[in-house]
Design a protein around this nucleic acid. Sequence first.
DNA 1: AAGGCGTGGGA
DNA 2: TTCCCAAGCCT
Length: 336
Amino acid sequence: MPWKETDDPYAIWLSEIILQQTRVAQGIKYYHKILERFPKVQDLANASEDEVLSSWKGLGYYSRARNLHTAAKTIVRDFGGVFPNTYDDILALKGVGPYTAAAISSFAFGLPYAVVDGNVYRVLSRYFGISDPIDERVGRLRLQQLAQECLVTGAPGDYNQAIMDFGAMVCTPALPQCVACPMSLHCRAYHEDRVSNLPVKAKKIAVRERHFLYFVIIRDQHILLSKRGRGDIWQGLYEPPLIEAKEQLSNIELAQKASLLLGKDISHRLLTPVERTKQKLTHQLIRATFYHFDLEVEHRDFQWFALTDLDQLAMPRIVDRHFKKMFSSGLQASLF
DNA sequence: AAGGCGTGGGA
DNA sequence: TTCCCAAGCCT
């Protein structure tokens, strides 16, 4: 992996933030792109939030990008632009938790801190046959402690890398390679035939279903968008004017709500959905319906953007994909 | 402490 | 299709 060829703590930090809850294959191109766009921590600190979010577009968990930006400013302001080199200072950075602090400490500075991520939970809970749920306090503490005891303190970086690689390639969540596994001789789960039952998770996530009705309004090669606020998904990302509904609305209700939203009476218009699509988040199912029309409107909540600038704006994937579809299919002309 | 926060890939 | 979930962190 490219970030294994560098000893720059900034690059290692970036790679670790990208890899939080993200597969290597998905994160790797973002790593190159973001490092090219912000080669030094100073470049990141001096950028605008929109620029940083834009570089993160499509990667998900956007608070990572906002926290990365905040931490870059901290490093420039409090550490003179030199990456902090103690576990506690690293842990104090916004967006850096126990896993990431241990990873940076060991990979960049050779400090003896054991990483505890999803791989480590899985490998250790199986090898030692531990059935305490890993999403509860007791199980987490027990595995953390075990991880630190197992750490090879003479080579913490290599050890940490090795146990995660082992979890990713051999001791995988589904279909682990037990037959070829060099650890199976002493693996408790293997001997007790409990591999597929470990690790244990106590809770499952409830998925909330939501209906988003988007109004794609284009005029003179400009499009009307607003920036999502705090307290909900996709904070800081751009999207067309939106109505959220409990379920399907009648045409009359739709026209009423749309008129209210846009500050303009559009009840005489026929609103035909151009596309219906959905996106599954970890804990929400978003069903989106896109309506298109041409309208002259000014509103303090919305802002006009040139269509040619759309690429540079961070948008939720469901919106991004809709736009891509609408421009590539040549539908645009017929739709407005 | 528990719930919120994205996305894409594999089974 | 549907489900699960991947190198977590914040509030």
